[in-house]
Design a protein around this nucleic acid. Structure first.
Lengths: 194, 194
DNA sequence: ATATCATTTCAACGTTCATTGAAACAAGGG
DNA sequence: CCCTTGTTTCAATGAACGTTGAAATGATAT
C-alpha cells in the first residue's frame, strides 16, 4: 500500500522489522533514563538504522505514534541537532535522517545538560560557603564550631562538583574530534581486567 | 518549641538555615536529573550537612514534608546504603546519618543503574545483530545490501555501548578505594586547559 | 483561486508519579 | 494490659507529563 512497498519476500523481512523495533525501544529506554522523552530515542534509532531518509508517515507507522507527537518530537530532535531534514527529489514530503556521528550527539547532550546542572549546583554550594564562612566570626563558640563543620562538608560537595565538571570536560575534549582515543582507552582497560 | 532549640542568636542562624536548604534543593535537583526522586537528594543533603544524626520530626520540619513521605524516602535511601539509622542514647526516636563517603555513593548508583541499563541495551543490539546477519544469506541482493548496511549501524551502536561500559568500569574501579586519583587527574586536566 | 496534501499547533484526555493524611502497626512505660 | 510515642503502610489526591485528534497553517499543483 505504501509507495515504498518492496517486492522482496515479506516473511523474511518481518523478523528484521521486529529486531529494528526492539533496538529502537532499547535506545528509547536509554534516553528515558537520561531524562529525555522515550520517543526521541525511538525516532532517532529508526532513522539511524535506515539506509535512506524517511518521511513522517513512515515513521508514524513504524513507531505507532500520531503525526502530532512525531512532529513535536522531530522539532526537538532537530533542536538537539541529532536529526536533519533533507529533501528527496520526486517527493513532496519532508524526509529526515539521523546524525550518524553518535559521539558528537552524546557530547552535545552531556555538554549542555550535565555541565549546566553541575555548574548550577556548584554555584549554590559556593554561595552557601560564603554565608557559612561569615558565621565563623560569631561570638558564640558553639556557632563557630558548627560553622567550621559545615564548611568542611560544603567543601566536600564543592570538590565533588569540580571533579565531575573536570572529568566531563576531559571526556568531551577527548572525544571532540574522534572517538578513537576513547575507544582505544576503553579497550585497553577491558583487556587489562581480563 | 522543639527539644533541640538552642539559646544561640536566632537571627544569625536564619541565613545559615536558608543556605542549608538551598544546598539541599540543589542536591535534590541534581538527583532528579539522575532519575531519582528529588526528596532523596534533599534528605541526604540535610543529613550530610548536619553535625549530629537527626530524627524524623526534625527532617520533616526542615524539609517541609509529611512523615509518610519521609519514611518511604528513608527506606529507599537505606536501600541504596547512603543513609544509616543510628541509636541516640536518651532518645526513643530513631536517628539518621548520611553516608559521608560521597564517592562510594556515586559509585554504587552508577554501578547498579547505568551498568544495567547499558548492558540491557547491548543485549538487545546483539540480538538484532544475530537476526540481521541471518538476512545476509538472503537470495535477493537488495535484502542482502540492506542487511549489510544495518549490520554496520548496529555495530556502531554496540561499540558505543561497550565503550560506555568500559569507561564506566574504568571510572568505578579508579574511584574504588579512594577519590584521590580521580581528583588529581581532574585537577591536572583543569590546569592543562588554563 | 481552489483543492489537495503535508506539517504544526494546541486543547483535552489519560497515565504516571510524588505526596499527603489517616489508619495500622510496633515498641515501651506506667 | 492499656496508653503514649514513634514509624510504616496505603488508598486517595493532585500535579506533571506524554499523547492524541482535530483544527489551523503552510505549501504545491491544477
Amino acid at each position: 500500500m505504501t509507495p515504498e512497498s518492496q517486492p522482496a519476500p515479506r516473511a523474511a523481512s518481518f523478523a528484521l522489522q521486529r529486531a529494528e523495533l526492539a533496538v529502537a525501544d532499547a535506545v528509547g529506554e536509554l534516553m528515558e533514563l537520561w531524562g529525555f522523552r522515550r520517543q526521541l530515542g525511538r525516532i532517532w534509532a529508526v532513522l539511524f538504522l535506515s539506509e535512506r531518509p524517511l518521511a513522517a508517515p513512515d515513521l508514524c507507522e513504524r513507531l505507532q505514534i500520531s503525526t502530532g507527537l512525531l512532529s513535536m518530537s522531530l522539532t526537538e530532535l532537530r533542536g538537539w541537532g541529532v536529526v536533519r531534514s533533507v529533501a528527496v527529489p520526486g517527493d513532496r514530503k519532508e524526509h529526515f535522517e539521523a546524525e550518524t556521528n553518535i559521539w558528537s550527539l552524546v557530547r552535545r547532550v552531556l555538554a549542555e545538560r550535565e555541565r549546566l546542572a553541575i555548574a548550577a549546583a556548584l554555584t549554590t554550594v559556593e554561595d552557601a560557603l560564603r554565608i557559612v564562612r561569615g558565621a565563623l566570626a560569631d561570638v558564640d563558640p558553639a556557632v563557630k564550631a558548627a560553622a567550621r563543620f559545615r564548611i568542611g562538608r560544603l567543601e566536600q560537595l564543592a570538590s565533588l562538583c569540580r571533579v565531575g565538571q573536570n572529568l566531563l570536560d576531559l571526556l568531551l575534549e577527548t572525544a571532540r574530534v574522534d572517538v578513537g582515543p576513547l575507544k582505544l582507552l576503553s579497550e585497553a582497560w577491558a583487556r587489562r581486567r581480563a
